[in-house]
Design a protein around this nucleic acid. Structure first.
Lengths: 265, 265
DNA sequence: CCTCTGCATTGATCTGCGTCAATGCCTGAG
DNA sequence: CTCAGGCATTGACGCAGATCAATGCAGAGG
């Protein structure tokens, strides 16, 4: 809740600076740096930028509230945001959004209230485009429409993967696969750093801090050791035998602008 | 597994005929009857229809398999299809699709493998459009692109609602709200029929048959009585006090072509 | 008619994971 | 330095819901 400059949680690198080294300083820059908007005509982006503002939000602040009607289309350009389902006083983690991505575009497009609350995790930068202008632009420009469609489709698939991960795997397996996946993305043998606080990883994997902690102990018995924020793959084959990565669950859901290829210029 | 004309499960009305009285007999008819395609130019639909086939599938048949690469964009025009996450021999119910809707358009659009298996629940009718032709049409025609975007956005929101329902409510509450919602849609006091077999409702609510059955007993103590396939709301106020419907969870996610309105002709 | 098959119900039991609570560690503030 | 607050770890416990198993029931088919 404090609004100081310390966006990064203690002892861990800022997710924002890790994912995106560059922070835009104007709306136009924000749109220009977004890869999946690259095929959208410049004048369309110009117009959007002219009706947008760029905002910085400290950790803990609410980007929008559940049940609110969208007044803006929001591009997350830096930091990270968690989406939570709210019921009375309870909140259930649903998804973690990383830059660059749209925050719940479905609500904006369909003119319907947000189904989730969006809260800043580590200091975020958000580009806010007036909702009506955004819808107009999507309805007017075909390239933008295609880009948003690809974005929305990717988000859908991410959601399905999350659902499968939770429903088809036990807590221990989720942790094992998560860690295994982390280590795969780096030279063999070398220890890897956890990309965020354990409490957040636990959320992302759909379990409590405590269960996560216990799972770490269990997973160590299969050759994946976690000490502090360092992950070491002690026995790669044992680990892989116990925890089978499935690209249809663990694969990163990347937004490839293949459809854009289909646009005949 | 049998391929006879008996698509409806014993004793319950066919979901298909309930949702859609009309069954198209040609691809062109199938596209014409789809409300959210109404703003798409006729020649575009003509072209799609010319590259499509209309198929009938008996209950139990597989429309497509998980991990398969989409060869067709599939419109469900009749019956119902369940989407399942598969892992080895286990399968986890993810979603129930009713007509008229696209089956996992995200995979088709992004040229990525299906994340789920699609299996026919009650005899289904499916319009299959060649995937490449479909992507071409979306990339070429703006109105179609908008329609598909709206469809995908709606599916996304449905998914979020399902997730919230499961994470934020107990099994008993899910059953109570489901039944309460059923009764709301009919004249007060009159008994309502369950729209499908209990086993399927249980799946849709994310629980086992047995838990569903027990929940029915529990729910009866709050004024909602289920006998066979008939639901009676004994004590409306008691029921509503215990089970609070939330439009952000229970509201039907309808595809309103509001965005299409934005298209300037 | 009887039999077979699939669904529903009910009971008994098991268990994964959440909850609660106590402790230790690290960091930043005073 | 000391203290306070947030995170992580660990243990004890409880519970919602899954699993296993037995029974009843209805429709289909011989």
């Amino acid at each position: 809740m404090e609004a100081d400059a310390h966006f990064a949680p203690a002892g861990l690198p800022d997710v924002a600076t890790q994912a995106e080294g560059f922070q835009p300083s104007t709306p136009r820059e924000a749109l220009a740096m977004t890869p999946w908007l690259s095929s959208v005509p410049h004048d369309v982006l110009d117009r959007l930028a002219s009706l947008a503002v760029l905002h910085r939000l400290p950790a803990g602040s609410i980007v929008f509230e559940q049940a609110e009607t969208p007044a803006f289309a929001q591009f997350l350009t830096g930091g990270s945001v968690e989406l939570l389902g709210i019921r009375g006083r309870e909140e259930a983690f649903v998804e973690l959004v990383r830059p660059v991505d749209l925050l719940l575009p479905a609500a904006v497009l369909n003119r319907q209230p947000y189904l989730l609350r969006a809260r800043v995790l580590s200091g975020a930068q958000v580009l806010m485009v007036q909702a009506e202008a955004f819808r107009d632009a999507v309805a007017t420009d075909h390239a933008l429409c295609l880009a948003v469609l690809a974005c929305q489709a990717t988000q859908f698939r991410r959601q399905i993967k999350l659902a499968k991960n939770v429903r088809l795997r036990s807590a221990e397996e989720r942790v094992g696969c998560y860690l295994l996946r982390l280590t795969e993305s780096s030279p063999s043998g070398a220890p890897v750093r956890l990309p965020m606080e354990k409490r957040l990883i636990a959320s992302e994997l759909g379990m409590t801090r405590e269960t996560f902690s216990r799972s770490l102990a269990a997973v160590a018995r299969h050759g994946i050791r976690v000490e502090g924020e360092l992950v070491t793959l002690d026995r790669p084959d044992a680990a892989r035998a116990r925890f089978t990565l499935d690209p249809l669950i663990d694969g990163a859901e990347t937004l490839n602008p293949l459809l854009a290829k289909g646009v005949r210029e």
